[in-house]
Design a protein around this nucleic acid. Structure first.
Lengths: 198, 198
DNA sequence: GTGGCACTAGACCGATCGGTCTATTCCAGT
DNA sequence: ACTGGAATAGACCGATCGGTCTAGTGCCAC
């Protein structure tokens, strides 16, 4: 087999691992449990990954590839006004959460669990949020110059806020097992951000 | 010794455990590590607590006692207008976070880590957020009848939103190690909630 | 066809996990 | 003074943890 990055066994570990990490958390997921679920022997795991931490970090990378795909899909859709594009991204994310049974966000979960003790995870996940926030900010800036939000607004700050509040709503959604915190958070945010058109 | 609820050894376990659970999370904190930190032998631990889960749930209870104390202190302060009381509670909470090195909120941490797998924790922590939200809502209702927020606003919904967004900001604060997400979230919320006076 | 390497396969390792057990200490009630 | 139970103390338990090691398999280059 070749290092084309799409090795089937490794990919299955990443996919199964993403779901299991979301459900059980990092310390709550044993390597053996992962291997049983993915039907992969231990030797393969330590062939493809240096250790459990390396594995989880690669799962985060995989998760971020999905996030960027969603951002590409929504934020570049110039047929819609920029604020609607931003909102659509989060509604698409909400749809993903629904499919997983409202278990919230993997970044939020791993961030909460590990950032108190593991600097590598802390930095990596902080970086993830920054990236999402930055991409959102450029779209908000577009809305600003267009006059859809107040001209003295700070798009970067607004984007930061949106991502932060979203993560809080995602946690509450995980606790309740439904979408209500997510939708009402979006309603509040877009009503309050001073949108002049839809 | 008597069952006055203030047994020194048990209290030390709860206090040390609260700090360690916040830092390491539930699965990241071994019973032995807790015992070493609290200078308590294992026999005492299993005398006072049925098992590790019972211990963590009692730590949550202890945490909520602190929260209620803060709520009592802030929300009943009739010298201030009700919106200012609500804001003061969260600013006091922010101050507590600062003292702990910006590790965020224990409820958020345990909720994220465990709610995917443990129904007892899920329900307990969801209940905690509901309680905090309800107490906040009564204060917001006071603000509503007073005319400080729009008369058609729903205080319970607004309180829910505030708590949710706060938790998100607390997570980001934990990741960054500073207070900025907390303060700017409060600024946004109280500016957007339609306050007519300070 | 064969040598070499990526990958699979799982037995095995010491350490640590949460939890139990027995022994002992300490103090209150009598 | 004695005694019963609360509390302390830590050795000990099987299970599971993350991780290593060796053996075997299959495939591609030559």
């Amino acid at each position: 087999m070749v290092m084309d990055g799409t090795h089937a066994t490794k990919q299955r570990l990443l996919d199964v691992g993403m779901a299991l990490l979301l459900e059980h958390g990092y310390h709550g997921l044993g390597v053996q449990a992962l291997l049983d679920a993915a039907q992969v022997p231990k030797g393969s795991f330590y062939h493809h990954f240096r250790d459990k931490e390396d594995f989880a970090l690669q799962v985060v990378d995989e998760y971020m590839r999905n996030v960027h795909h969603g951002l590409d899909q929504c934020l570049n859709d110039t047929a819609r006004p920029p604020l609607a594009r931003v909102r659509r991204f989060f509604e698409l994310t909400e749809e993903n959460y629904r499919r997983e049974g409202y278990l919230g966000c993997l970044l939020g979960g791993l961030g909460q669990e590990l950032s108190g003790v593991n600097g590598t995870f802390r930095a990596r996940i902080a970086e993830c949020f920054t990236v999402i926030s930055e991409r959102t900010a450029t779209c908000l800036e577009e809305a600003r110059v267009r006059g859809d939000i107040p001209s003295d607004a700070d798009p970067r700050e607004m984007a930061c806020l949106l991502v932060d509040c979203w993560e809080g709503a995602a946690l509450r959604s995980r606790l309740r097992g439904d979408a209500e915190p997510l939708t009402s958070m979006l309603d509040f945010y877009f009503a309050a951000s001073g949108a002049r058109r839809q």
